[in-house]
């Protein structure tokens, strides 16, 4: 007789199929300035998962990303992630809030960079670079300089660079915050496509936009500041690809309301 306990639980996560790629256990981070950026943070992201960290400025969400990328070390607790393995190269990708493109190089050369640093020549890397440029819709702009691109196109190039090494982990730090709403929503949709097409890539996304969090993720972790910590978690029970009109549907509005509440409570705490 099949048990039905899990089926109707609104916050049940999808059944874990892969071990956690990113695993933070009781992680604390204290900077030299004395700022306690994180305290007692535990979270896990598995392959194939899209998880969002949602919170106000100063709640430490960017710090979590940087810990997962190996760009910072924890003051306490444990972090395990592919980036921290010795011999790791290209398995973790990072997309910054600014496109962070090299202004003196063409779009092609910018996207080639991760492969180039791994030792692949331009000809060796060309197929992969061209493929990913095609995927993000920049195939015609391979020889353009970043200065010639619009904000949205630069961000596509940045994402293309992130995807070119077929990373296991994709870390994104408020990548669309500087863009207008229309471009942002378009890129949201495209991002989901690219992530989904990549198979078992784990995505950890940071934003302070409730709508964006709901639109993109399977799970949203709400964070509060002083000190930075996770205060709530919500599962978004919607399929990929998101159905047309998803942003106007009842489940979407409902999830936004609940996240909004959680944020308000966290702020009051």
């Amino acid at each position: 007789m099949p048990t039905t306990e899990h089926v109707n639980e609104p916050a049940a996560p999808p059944a874990p199929t892969l071990p956690p790629l990113i695993d933070l256990q009781q992680v604390g981070k204290r900077f030299d300035s004395g700022l306690q950026a994180l305290q007692g943070v535990s979270l896990a992201v598995r392959g194939g998962e899209f998880v969002t960290l949602l919170g106000p400025s100063g709640c430490g969400k960017s710090t979590v990303l940087r810990l997962a990328a190996g760009l910072e070390a924890p003051s306490s607790g444990r972090v395990s992630a592919p980036a921290l393995q010795p011999g790791s190269r290209g398995d973790t990708a990072f997309v910054f809030q600014e496109p962070t493109l090299m202004p003196w190089a063409s779009v092609f050369d910018n996207v080639w960079l991760p492969l180039r640093l791994q030792g692949h020549s331009r000809t060796q890397a060309a197929p992969a670079v061209q493929a990913v440029l095609q995927r993000v819709g920049l195939a015609d702009f391979a020889q353009a300089r970043p200065a010639q691109l619009s904000g949205g196109m630069k961000m596509r190039a940045s994402i293309a660079r992130a995807l070119v090494t077929r990373p296991q982990v994709l870390l994104m730090d408020e990548p669309f915050a500087a863009l207008d709403d229309i471009t942002r929503q378009a890129l949201n949709a495209d991002l989901l496509q690219w992530w989904h097409a990549a198979g078992s890539m784990a995505a950890l996304f940071v934003t302070h936009s409730v709508a964006e969090a709901v639109a993109l993720s399977q799970r949203v972790l709400v964070m509060a500041a002083h000190p930075g910590r996770v205060v709530a978690e919500l599962a978004i029970d919607a399929p990929y690809p998101r159905p047309a009109g998803f942003r106007h549907s009842a489940p979407f509005t409902d999830a936004c309301r609940r996240l909004g509440q959680a944020l308000a409570e966290a702020h009051a705490a």
Partner: peptide
Amino acid sequence: ADANLRDLFRLYRASPWQRLRLLSLPAAL
């Protein structure tokens, strides 16, 4: 050189020589 670019080079385990040639020198130009 932009701080984020420097992080990027660290992320991809660039050697000091690669960093000099591909990042520091062009940025300094």
